[in-house]
């Protein structure tokens, strides 16, 4: 158990193997924010939960995909469905499409999370309404791993209106943007489909960022942040 977790986390006893993997993650050096966008690596993330309240509902699945050197590595996607002791209510299944059978066939949450961190390393995480995904992941991490693993997040809900002000979608949904750019999604709300849709939006935004003279990861993060503050 790390010092950090002992001081701030809930007390959770982890098997040493998992503990070692978390420590290995902590050793990873994050890339500089000065990296050029054309060379940068991002990880597009989408979580599925048992409801719409990130502070109360359970994590059902994590989907993620690398986006590196301007390409979405759709062939090397990451998806983990988390084992549930109680299956989620019926109406929600209609949204995320994970059947009760699949939920009980998932893997334990601590394993899913560690594998996710190993997949995501310390790259910038990208999501639409990132605050939701961030809260869910942080809460689950604290609950099952008893710790906090810090990440930089890039919220496309901020970046998209910042780069396309002419779209006049300051509070648009992911669907609004997908519709605007004509991105077809076969079945929305499966974690992987949502990840790819978000990833495609990110590809468009990177293309636009280049045209608007943004060069580095840091500049992109600042652009999103400025947009966020502009409507507080």
């Amino acid at each position: 158990m790390s010092l950090f977790a002992r001081l701030f986390g809930d007390r959770v006893e982890l098997p040493p193997a998992l503990e070692n993997r978390i420590n290995a993650w902590r050793e990873i050096k994050p890339a500089s924010e000065q990296v050029l966008l054309a060379d940068a690596t991002f990880v597009v993330v989408d979580v599925e939960t048992s409801g719409l309240d990130p502070r109360r509902d359970r994590l059902l699945a994590i989907g993620a995909c690398l986006l590196s050197e301007g390409r979405l590595w759709s062939g090397a996607g990451f998806e983990r469905i988390i084992f549930q002791t109680e299956t989620s209510s019926k109406d929600n299944i209609l949204i995320h499409g994970i059947a009760p059978g699949e939920q009980s066939g998932g893997i334990p949450p601590e394993q899913a999370l560690v594998e996710f961190f190993e997949f995501a390393r310390k790259h910038v995480l990208v999501a639409y309404h990132a605050q939701f995904d961030r809260t869910v992941i942080d809460r689950a991490t604290r609950a099952v791993l008893g710790t906090h693993l810090p990440y930089s997040w890039l919220d496309l809900a901020d970046l998209a209106p910042a780069l396309f002000p002419e779209a006049r979608l300051p509070h648009g949904s992911l669907d609004d943007w997908l519709y605007r750019f004509g991105i077809h999604v076969v079945s929305r709300h499966r974690a992987m489909d949502d990840v790819l849709a978000t990833g495609e939006l990110m590809l468009i935004l990177l293309n636009q960022a280049k045209k608007r003279g943004l060069e580095t990861v840091g500049q992109l993060l600042a652009e999103a942040e400025a947009q966020q503050h502009s409507h507080i």
Binding site: G63, S74, G75, G77, F78, E79, R80, I81, G105, G106, I107, V186, R190, M192, D193, L196
Partner: peptide, 20 residues
Amino acid sequence: MVESLDAQQAMALQPVIAFL
């Protein structure tokens, strides 16, 4: 568990496979 992992990895490819 290994089987289940392979299955999950395969699932991540489903959208691409469905397109192909």
